[in-house]
Simulated assay, not measured.
Amino acid sequence: MAATSVRPKWASLPTDARAYVERRLGSPVTAAVDCTGGFTPGVASRLLLADGRHVFLKGMSSDHPFAPQYADEIAVTSVLPDGVGPRVLWWAMPEDSDGWWWLCLEDIPGTVPVLSPDSADTVMALAAVEQAGKLLTPSPLDSARPITELVGRWLTGWSTLAAQNPDDLDPWAAGHLSALAGIEEKWQQDAAGKTLLHWDLRPDNMLRREDGSVVIIDWSYQNQGAAWIDPAVLVPHLIMDGHSPADAEAAVSHLPQPDDPDVLTAFAAGIGGYWEKSSRRPNPPGVPFLRAHQVRAAAATRVWLRHRTGWV
């Protein structure tokens, strides 16, 4: 897949950082394939060790603004049950590793699935989402917070834009800005639940194994809530991969859904406003492609919203 982040290469890391990792691995690193996917600027490298093992290493210096997200990922990934996510080999906190967060995982050979209509990848990705929802209810993470505590504050983009009244909004969004702001928080009334949520489901947070099965990766948020939320998060990405809104909804219809369809419409408004607002911000350090992704996601979610609301 195309590069989406600017990550440091294994060979460019400080000597002390590489030495610590090799001590933990118990073997020198003889080769590294540095990954470029994702939207965080930390180390992400597939390492070949002198003893023949392969591992996948993620890491970031604790003084980077994104570092707290690595702490969250370690907390979540380390408690995932078998059948959900990659297997954790070891992790380290900055106080134990000269100022770095490290997460060492099994190396899973695979590629990013393509979630297009009639794709076998789509079927297997949805099977992975279904299994994760079942195995993560109730949440195995005691520190997981209600999703409304953090995400609820994020999904208020239309209200922010209504106050700013930008002149470059999509005409449909501009014409319904007040109505979108009026519904964007109503999904929270049906958001409570005991499921540990990924929250950031999208194709590049998945890997298609050689046998065709899909594993969900990059568990970076300590959120729990209603089981319908993760399937709903995936809908705009299905649209971006070629599904119509109706077909995208049909694809996830066997997964948990809110009892009130207006709740799903409100969630679509919330996530669409989040991307619409976020896409206008400057790029974070080391992540030059994030805003362009959010522009595409916002456009796909507008298509979904037009379908759900029927507003012309």
Rank of each mutant, 00 (worst) to 15 (best):
G270N: 02
S12K: 11
G242Q: 02
D82Y: 08
P109K: 08
D211V: 10
S244C: 11
H243N: 06
P282W: 07
D190H: 11
V312P: 08
R296H: 13
I108S: 07
A174P: 01
I239F: 00
C104Q: 05
V112C: 14
V79A: 09
G83Y: 11
H237P: 05
G26L: 13
I183P: 01
V88P: 11
D190C: 09
D259Y: 01
L180V: 00
G26N: 13
E106F: 08
V312F: 03
L180P: 01
L25A: 06
V21S: 05
L89Y: 12
L177R: 01
W219F: 13
E184I: 00
Y70E: 06
D167K: 10
T111M: 11
G225P: 14
S143V: 15
S12I: 03
W154K: 13
Y20K: 09
V287Y: 02
Q224L: 09
D98N: 14
V84P: 05
Y20I: 09
H293Y: 15
H293G: 10
Q257N: 13
P117T: 06
R24S: 13
K186A: 04
I183Q: 00
T156W: 07
H293V: 01
P94K: 01
L155G: 02
P203E: 03
L115Y: 09
L234M: 13
L201R: 03
P203Q: 07
E185S: 11
A300M: 04
V123K: 13
T111P: 05
L196Q: 14
M60L: 15
A67M: 07
R296F: 03
L57T: 10
A227H: 11
L161A: 06
E276F: 00
F66K: 08
K58Y: 06
D167T: 13
L177N: 02
V295R: 05
Y221S: 14
H237R: 06
H237K: 04
I239V: 12
L207Q: 10
A144C: 07
P146F: 09
E184M: 00
N205I: 04
H254C: 05
Y221P: 03
P285G: 03
Q188C: 11
I229H: 00
P113F: 02
N205E: 03
V55C: 13
A192D: 15
V235E: 08
P282Q: 09
S78I: 09
G212E: 09
G83E: 12
N283L: 08
D118V: 02
D204W: 11
S97R: 10
V76W: 03
L13I: 10
V6N: 10
S12A: 15
D170N: 10
D118N: 12
A50I: 14
T137Y: 02
P138A: 02
H307N: 06
P256L: 04
M93L: 14
K9G: 15
W187S: 02
K277H: 14
T195V: 10
E149D: 15
L13Y: 06
L13T: 08
I74R: 04
T40H: 06
A19W: 06
E184W: 00
W158M: 09
Y20R: 14
V252M: 05
K186S: 08
D142E: 15
S62C: 15
A92K: 04
E95F: 07
A71S: 15
G286S: 07
Y274Q: 02
S61I: 11
Q294T: 05
R53I: 14
